[in-house]
């Protein structure tokens, strides 16, 4: 991928991202099948969810404890659309889910971003909890029962009938979405998000509209999280209030922290590690949360920048004594992002 990235056409258009996903799509079915392939499918949906969360948490430096709100919103949107019109194309449903979540997020952010730091994080948590409660209180959301039978959603004329079809479909959707997010990360808007995270005062003094950048980041993050939620709903065939719980919001932040957010690929790695450790541990020990918690603890203490900071750390260790005048590489990624949360936002 790095060699490809050096070619100007490839690096401009992010072709290597698409090629990477195409390669993964083709190779995995040769190595895995059945429930293992299904775990990979789930992991890929979480790859999208984690990357979308990183837009907010990693790039823009806004901590949200309510990402499940949008993940669940995507799933419920798809379920409601399917109930209304089972003939509707799944792709249309994904687009609608993204739009609904994006608009709701933008409206919410306009209000919530009057606060910053911990207050903002709490408001996002409140949003997710309110939506979770609504699934029980609003009749047509079916409470604990939720929605079933989403296997039937039509893709290119018919429902997906095998794990393999679901796999190809999920990789295609996730591949395109992650590619779009990659382009965003290389756009001036993506750079403006980093600028706002690094120093909102400096950003405003340059003429960047800080609030607008934050609201956009929130909306984009929500829209793609909703697509991930809809993909999960389709893969599992079921939508339930569980998708709106704090456990989901917490897990996706864990995925970002494990992978690290200083590089685009960090959350991708984090999501795969999270889903596979959960699956393997619950298969072996019938319990995964303790293990994931320990993993997070080890990462946060021993590798604060997540897995993506590992190569830099190893390189740093090799040249233990830096040349005169050279300073150690400053910490980046998640650690920096959370530092900025302490900083007061621009009024």
């Amino acid at each position: 991928m790095t060699v490809l990235e050096r070619l100007p056409l490839v690096s401009r258009s992010g072709l290597h991202v698409l090629i990477g996903f195409a390669a993964v799509a083709m190779v995995m079915p040769l190595l895995f099948s059945g429930s293992q392939l299904f775990t990979w499918t789930t992991a890929l949906a979480w790859v999208l969810f984690a990357t979308a969360t990183s837009v907010l948490f990693g790039w823009t430096g806004l901590l949200s404890f309510g990402q499940a709100a949008f993940f669940g919103m995507g799933a419920y949107t798809m379920a409601l659309l399917y109930e209304r019109d089972p003939e509707m194309s799944g792709f249309v449903m994904l687009v609608v889910a993204a739009l609904v979540a994006g608009v709701v997020a933008a409206l919410f952010a306009l209000f919530a971003l009057r606060t910053s730091g911990a207050e903002f994080a709490i408001l996002t948590l409140v949003l997710a909890q309110v939506l979770w409660l609504l699934t029980y209180r609003v009749d047509w959301l079916n409470g604990e029962e939720g929605f079933h039978g989403l296997f039937g959603v039509k893709i290119l004329g018919g429902p997906l009938t095998s794990d393999l079809q679901l796999w190809y479909y999920t990789t295609a959707v996730v591949g395109v979405c992650v590619w779009l997010l990659w382009l965003l990360s290389r756009s001036t808007a993506g750079q403006a998000m980093r600028a706002v995270r690094d120093d909102p005062w400096r950003a405003a003094a340059l003429g960047i509209r800080v609030r607008r950048v934050q609201v956009s980041a929130f909306a984009v993050s929500a829209a793609f999280s909703a697509v991930a939620g809809a993909l999960i709903a389709q893969g599992q065939g079921v939508v339930s209030p569980g998708m709106l719980t704090f456990a989901i919001s917490g897990e996706i932040l864990v995925a970002c922290l494990i992978g690290g957010t200083s590089k685009f690929i960090g959350p991708v790695i984090g999501a795969v590690v999270l889903i596979w450790s959960q699956t393997l541990m619950s298969n072996i020990f019938h319990e995964s949360n303790i293990f994931v918690g320990l993993l997070l603890l080890v990462i946060v203490i021993a590798l604060p920048g997540g897995f993506v900071s590992l190569p830099g750390r190893l390189a740093g260790r090799r040249r233990r004594r830096p040349a005169k005048g050279e300073s150690a590489p400053p910490p980046s990624g998640a650690a920096t992002a959370s530092d900025d949360l302490v900083e007061e936002g621009v009024r």
Binding site: S187, A189, D199, L206
Partner: peptide, 26 residues
């Protein structure tokens, strides 16, 4: 006040770009 995680070049790029009143686009 600078953008601490960005390179010197990228700091200047953000300034030069916004100075052109080009705005920020997706």
């Amino acid at each position: 006040r600078l953008f601490p995680t960005m390179s010197v070049r990228d700091n200047l790029f953000m300034a030069a770009l916004t100075g052109q009143r080009r705005g920020i686009k997706f």
